[in-house]
Amino acid sequence: MLEIKNLTVEVGGKEILHDLSLSVKAGYTTVLFGPNGSGKSTLLMTIMGFSEYKVKNGSILLNGEDITHMPVNERAKRGIGMMMQRPPNLTGVRLKDLVRIAGKGEVDPAVLAEGLDMTRFLERDVNVGFSGGEIKRSEILQLEAQKPCLLLLDEPESGVDMVSIEKLGLKVHDILQGQSHCAGWREKSGKAALIITHTGQILDYVEGDRGYVMCDGTVACSGNPRELLAEIRKMGYNECIRCKLKRPNVVENL
């Protein structure tokens, strides 16, 4: 389980997240909504630990352990895995090799790739010349090898074609339901996910347990993700901003 308390984060000297608190329970699929620029991706990048995202205040606890200033790979070791929105190109690094290493040599990249229709990408350099949808599939392929216990998915469905979206959605479902190997995660509680989505399409494949709406770098409101989505579809984000004014301490209501 992940516990974020009063997190303030700067990127390039500019404060993006302000005093943000939320939690992801073990076994819970948590969904993040919010307008463009509200800080959703920043939150995920900060949880993963990318150094450009500087925590100025607050803390990130994973299973009770403070990981706020821990190196990225230590977080990965503790079971966090991320699908990035715009991962960097790795010229000269073949996808096949990265999948094998992410799976600690215990997976067969060819078998995993087949399930995502990614076989022809295995010999290619990671992300180089990949389309938006191909990047998503490549990221999921890597995550499937990595077997994380807390998945951070940044818009998993965006840019993915109608046929691939089903494969990808089911794969996310499988990863979430699959066996957990991470220390500190109780088997029975299962894995957890924090998923950014605008369209909610991913919710056709994984059941969302809890939803948060972010506005201006902090959590505005929380609730049932389907209800939140319906409300956003109907009213836009305005209703949520109002709800933030009414209920500033949403985390308390969990």
Binding site: S51, E52, V72, N73, V93, L98
Partner: peptide, 23 residues
């Protein structure tokens, strides 16, 4: 960002640098 991307897949910093350099 390349180094950290690989680290997010579980590689140590040294392993990540090695992989990028060899690539």
């Amino acid at each position: 960002d390349q180094v950290e991307y690989l680290m997010s897949r579980g590689l140590s910093e040294e392993e990540a640098v090695g992989m990028i350099v060899r690539g």
